[in-house]
Design a protein around this nucleic acid. Structure first.
Length: 255
DNA sequence: ATGGTGGTGCGACCA
């Protein structure tokens, strides 16, 4: 079972990229972020023609998440229970016996900004919810655009990014509070290497110069850890014409 | 120190 995550930065624009990548990568489950589409405009028919069911929760211009899967998604939830939030950033469902939680974590803009405070409150609410989810669903995958680089190996220039947004200690502590629930960064189960990024700024030829961060993560629960046989970052779609600024990341679970 | 690039949608705002 191959499970992937991709921030597409507008599904409307990236539909051809998604189609090409699905055909090549053959994932069983894909979590999308930044679809930027209201539910009435979601291209579930086009995605069905590619062999995938869709569940989705979006808004126009900003945010929006979806789960695509070969088999139907069950018990779908489209928000953090009990957390007041107008922004469409969460969708969860059970797919082929695995609980999959797709997160588009708040960016935060800058350390100390009002959006940064919202990011930390949002992450605390997610942690509390995931604590309950992992008890209910031991076979849990939490994936998405975390907008946090877990440590300095995940940052092209740690000195320049020191205590900056996406890298600050409170953000990393909030991520640790989530992984401390018994969730493992699947990429780090198979590689200790630095310089492996999933996002590159469009500006300053960021991708060409590999000025990136690893902020897109696939976390697997203790119960799934032994089944996690491979993981990776697929840089290729970032080389295509008019790409998303994020690359797909993925994990393969043995049966 | 500034601004550089994209998406949405036509002026900012978000990343």
């Amino acid at each position: 079972m191959k499970i992937a995550s991709w921030n597409v930065n507008s599904l409307n624009v990236r539909m051809p990229h998604l189609a090409q990548w699905l055909a090549a990568a053959q994932p069983d489950v894909v979590a999308l972020q930044e679809t930027k589409l209201e539910d009435t405009r979601f291209p579930d028919g086009d995605i069905a023609a590619l062999g995938y069911r869709s569940v989705f929760c979006g808004q126009k211009t900003y945010n929006g998440v979806a789960l695509l899967s070969r088999v139907p998604a069950e018990d779908c939830v489209i928000a953090i229970p009990g957390f007041e939030d107008e922004q469409k950033r969460v969708i969860a469902a059970t797919i082929d016996g695995v609980r999959v939680v797709n997160l588009y974590v708040v960016n935060g803009k800058a350390v100390g900004d009002v959006k940064y405070e919202y990011k930390l409150r949002w992450l605390a609410a997610v942690r509390d919810w995931l604590a309950a989810q992992i008890a209910q669903y031991p076979e849990l995958v939490v994936l998405g655009d975390f907008n946090i680089a877990p440590d300095d190996r995940d940052v092209h220039d740690p000195a320049a990014w020191h205590e900056k947004i996406l890298c600050s200690t409170p953000e990393r502590d909030a991520l640790r509070a989530i992984t401390d629930l018994g969730l493992h960064d699947s990429f780090r189960l198979h590689s200790e290497e630095g310089g492996q990024f999933s996002w590159w700024d469009y500006r300053m030829a960021g991708f060409r110069r590999n000025l990136g961060l690893r902020i897109d993560l696939v976390l697997v629960s203790d119960a799934l850890r032994a089944r996690c046989v491979a993981s990776g970052i697929d840089r290729e779609p970032r080389t295509w014409e008019r790409p998303s600024d994020h690359a797909p990341v993925w994990v393969r679970l043995a049966r």
